[in-house]
Design a protein around this nucleic acid. Structure first.
Length: 431
RNA sequence: GGAGAGGUGGCUGAGCGGUCGAAAGCGGCGGUCUUGAAAACCGUUGAAGGGCGACCUUCCGGGGGUUCGAAUCCCUCCCUCUCCGCCA
């Protein structure tokens, strides 16, 4: 959520910055609501003040042993007016809040202009795509040839857009998770956490998935005692949600502040809007594993943290020897809650292009405001909002795809990088 | 699932219809003392919102209700703890 003060103070500047994302701020409606809010709030508070003063007088009269009946008669008439004023104020605030919750974050000044993916800016590139002296297969063909990757059984068990892995490929998948967790905990200073995979609506509102993107989520309805459907939970679309919510409603002490978490979870995405994209293979699935990096930092440190976190994610690819490039997302391509985002894209020989394997974002105080996640500066000042960041470190399924496609030989065998050998029980070649 | 007990400020914890936004302790901050620190002592210290301001409003797990007035009474939901049952 944006700072309401900022919106009040300079609505046009906010609108201009949002226009870079291709978002039109409903300025007329906002200023109308804000005006109504102010009037209603002042009116309500005046009535409350009057009621409080008179009620107090009744109390004092009674304490003196007086009757107070005449005073009570005076206040009676106030009740209805107060209630009406309170209702009206609540209505306006609900409406205002609804609008506010639907406004995306402001892009940082350093974010390049642009409408979509095509306008993203490459900031660096690492590794050389291998020159194959044969036509490289994509992971679907490789998996089928190896007999270790199968979409039909997954469709039978569940539905389209699921996959089953078996044997050494299933082990490789697990090995990648262990490798990533070990790297980030032992070398990059993250604390490993295990969290719920089902979360409530408040958590999703906190990180920004709700209210706007409910259609992307799998929702679990829980029948209550009467069989009525209430108290829904949602399957997490990313560990970002439960992990960032670790600090929801907290006031952290200064020495407790940078917090760095790493967490492996499955992720579940309904992605109702994107059918038809990446239908082949395991690039876009309803269920996938991810190792996520989350940082809770002091506001002044968040941009340094973004560089650091992105580098931590890149390190995974470096260790695996997978060629990648890092792009700065343009304003139009960034996610709802992000102020600044780097995508890391890995080279996929099967597609002859770089594909997103990690997205590292600084949310500044946007999520923190929704979460009421705060910290106290050393000198015992007022609590201030923290800044939050996260990034995949990495998406496991896509890493598996990249390994298969980049490390294949003419016969369709997969030659694993040395970094994974300890996690594979000595197996260095699959197939 | 059954029975019971609870949810109060950064933390612990009192209050159970009327100056209670809330005692006390811890912690934090400021000061005295000290070469410095600790200890001791004194003072101070919740959050959010509104108003140009003097100030005002809201908040005692969430929501609803009773009342002139609710942390305190009622309803409901959520959560925590103890015992029993069941269970990976």
């Amino acid at each position: 959520m944006l700072d309401p003060h900022l919106i009040r103070a300079d609505l046009d500047a906010v609108a201009r910055r949002l226009a870079r994302r291709g978002v039109e701020l409903p300025t007329a409606r906002l200023s109308e609501l804000e005006g109504a809010r102010k009037a209603a709030q002042i009116a309500t508070q005046e009535l409350q003040q009057e009621r409080n003063a008179r009620s107090k007088a009744i109390g004092q009269a009674k304490a003196r042993g007086e009757d107070g009946a005449s005073l009570m008669a005076e206040v009676g008439a106030l009740g209805d007016r107060l209630q009406a004023a309170e209702r009206r104020l609540e209505e306006i605030q609900d409406e205002l809040n609804e609008v506010l919750l639907g406004i995306p974050n402001l892009p940082h000044d350093s974010v390049p202009d642009g409408r979509d993916e095509a306008d993203n800016l490459e900031v660096r590139r690492w590794g050389e795509p291998a020159a194959f002296d044969f036509a490289p297969r994509d992971h679907v063909d490789l998996g089928a040839k190896l007999g270790l990757l199968d979409f039909e059984s997954a469709a039978r068990i569940a539905a389209a857009r699921f996959a089953t892995l078996s044997g050494p490929l299933a082990r490789l998948h697990r090995a990648l998770i262990q490798f990533m967790l070990d790297l980030h905990t032992t070398e990059h200073g993250y604390r490993e956490v295990y969290v719920p995979y089902l979360v409530n609506a408040d958590s999703l509102t906190g990180t920004g998935q709700l209210p706007k993107f409910e259609q992307d989520l799998f929702k679990i309805q829980r029948p209550d005692a009467d069989g009525a459907l209430e108290r829904s939970l949602y399957l997490i679309p990313t560990a970002e949600v439960p992990v960032t919510n670790l600090v929801r409603g907290e006031i952290l002490e200064a020495e407790d502040v940078p917090r760095r978490y790493v967490c492996h979870t499955p992720c579940f995405r309904s992605e109702a809007g994107s059918y038809g994209k990446d239908t082949r293979g395991m690039i876009r699935q309803h269920q996938f594993e991810k190792v996520e990096l989350v940082q809770i930092v002091r506001p002044e440190d968040s941009y340094a943290a973004l560089e650091q976190l992105t580098a931590h994610a890149e390190t995974v690819l470096r260790r695996l020897g997978l060629p990648f490039r890092t792009v700065a997302l343009c304003a139009g391509d960034m996610g709802f809650s992000a102020a600044n985002t780097y995508d890391i894209e890995v080279w996929l020989p099967g597609q002859q292009r770089y594909r997103e394997i990690s997205s590292c974002s600084n949310f500044e105080d946007f999520q923190a405001r929704r979460l009421q996640a705060r910290w106290r500066r050393p000198q015992g000042k007022k609590p201030e909002l923290v800044h939050t960041l996260n990034g995949s470190g990495l998406a496991v399924g896509r890493t598996l795809v990249a390994l298969m496609e980049n490390c294949q030989d003419r016969e369709g065998r997969i030659h694993l990088p040395a970094a994974l050998h300890p996690y594979m029980g000595g197996v260095s070649v699959i197939g």
